[in-house]
Write a protein that binds this DNA or RNA. Structure first.
Lengths: 302, 302
DNA sequence: CAAATCGATAGCCTGGAGGCATCGATCCAG
DNA sequence: CTGGATCGATGCCTCCAGGCTATCGATTTG
């Protein structure tokens, strides 16, 4: 059996006339008759009751017709789906992201992407920058949203957002009213930090700031998530250094003051494979050009 | 595009190896390569990324693969459905039936049929014997369950049940305790009847009985349905002549006494076209052989 | 660097799809 | 009732396309 048999059969079933069906199919009537006969032999069932005066479907023919039409439709759908997938209009992107962008870049990105390419599903998985690199290389994710990553062979980095760093202070803190401050002024403060083994990059950032200011920041408490971190700050356990985008968490009882040091900044990057062939990826990366994404967002770039 | 392209593509997608796929398909590898190329040209999309070392699906290929598999499955399903329909195991039978069999033959018939051939749907339509004849001839129904029908050219009659007639009496009626009675004894009774214009056959039956007994039955009230009829009898409006199967309605306040006259009987018949080609019809008619149907029924034949 | 693996390409061959002519059955007009 | 028209089936021929063999070229491996 071939698709030809199906299209021929559907035509005859619709016309109930071999001559007209043949005309519509641009073949001669004898060819059509023979193909229908072959189809019946193949299925093992008489599909059409025909005399020289009248052609009509048998019960089996009606049943088969339904399936034939569905089959042809399914195939056409496959053709279209393949084209849409190849053009990046449909498909799937597995996106790894660091926790801190979940409150900043990610919601707008997902919303914009869903609006622009609703048939592309985003498979979101939170993972640290360190975990994203091997995941990309091994093909477990297609795009990563990372922080402060140095170039890696085979991977392509695209800066998305250059953020200043803020100090999160308890609402009653002595420094709360300052419009800005230098990190050295935090010499005696206890810090709420993220765990060094899981987020070494964030920890390094803090440690580097301290080294430049001439002291070693003292950790009062380790928190696993930014929300916890801010709750601890609000509870006066200590102060915390966070990227600017965390401000959008709007935790009550916490004041933010920008750090004035030149290297007090963090860069969010989109990371992808140089030889990526998933056609849905470019569309996502394009959205991450700052101008694309930040149109209707409340995060202000540095 | 032809089905060949789909099966070939599915094979390659599963093996991810042209050589092995070709072997499985019993064709030479170059043919397979060419067919896959044709398929890609046809769809307009690269489905497989291939080097001499490795073959893998593109995103579009994965998408198309899903549809290809579904298409082939759909087709196979159609083949099977056509065969089942042709063999009478699936399909549809439009069944006309007189109201009086709705309480007798029909429930058991439908239940047995559903049990034996669950894929054949019964399309039930209540209609009088008079309406069934043209409906059969014009092909609006496939089978009719009728009463007391004389042979009709082109139609095939099959007796299903030969029933005696009963008199339905109010519970307090003078004749209620009789084990049987002759119709002549009902000479002075008022009758509850079905409407003459809609059910002439039932009316004729009553009138014939009266003529043989030497009187004209007097209609006290006309009822449209057997349930109404029995309610009227229970309310002492009159007596009624009903086929034996109506007894299964078990209306309270009504007693039944058999009529002893030789022609006090009614025959339920299955009617079908002599040239019927709906393959699901024989299965239904076979169930209507008395031995088939009445195994687990409480209706007793005369 | 030689050998092996594997998909692509080239060229030939044949089966089968399509075309034309015609048959045979059926219906209808005169 | 008969000749013509209609329409699907059949027979035969042609030619394209799918399949085969041989070979190439790229890549990996020992």
């Amino acid at each position: 059996m071939e698709l030809r048999h199906l299209t021929y059969f559907v035509a005859v079933a619709e016309e109930l006339h071999f001559g007209r069906a043949a005309e519509r199919l641009l073949v001669a009537q004898p060819s059509l008759s023979r193909q229908i006969r072959q189809l019946e032999d193949e299925v093992g069932v008489v599909l059409l009751e025909r005399t020289s005066r009248r052609v009509e479907l048998t019960a089996a023919g009606r049943s088969f017709l339904d399936h034939a039409v569905a089959t042809l439709a399914q195939l056409e759908e496959g053709r279209i789906a393949a084209r849409r997938t190849a053009s990046g209009l449909a498909g799937q992107v597995r996106l790894g992201f660091v926790a801190s962008v979940a409150v900043a870049v990610l919601p707008d990105l997902v919303a914009a992407h869903r609006r622009l390419r609703p048939e592309v599903t985003l498979d979101l998985r939170e993972m640290t920058t360190e975990a994203q690199v091997p995941a990309l290389v091994e093909g477990r994710i297609d795009v990563g949203l990372a922080r402060d990553l140095e170039p890696v062979p085979g991977l392509c980095l695209q800066p998305v957002l250059r953020e200043g760093l803020l100090v999160a202070l308890p609402a009653g803190h002595a420094l709360r009213a300052r419009r800005r401050l230098r990190f050295a002024e935090l010499r005696d403060q206890p810090f709420v930090t993220l765990p060094r083994d899981q987020v070494p990059r964030a920890w390094d950032r803090l440690w580097t700031l301290g080294r430049r200011a001439g002291f070693s920041p003292r950790t009062a408490q380790v928190a696993l998530q930014y929300t916890t971190m801010l709750a601890l700050v609000a509870a006066d356990i200590g102060v915390a250094v966070v990227p600017e985008s965390v401000r959008s968490l709007r935790s009550s009882g916490v004041r933010y003051v920008p750090i004035d040091d030149p290297d007090a900044e963090s860069v969010i990057l989109a990371v992808s494979r140089e030889d990526e062939c998933n056609p849905a990826v470019p569309g996502l990366l394009h959205l991450l050009d700052r101008d694309q994404l930040l149109d209707d967002t409340d995060i202000t770039a540095t």
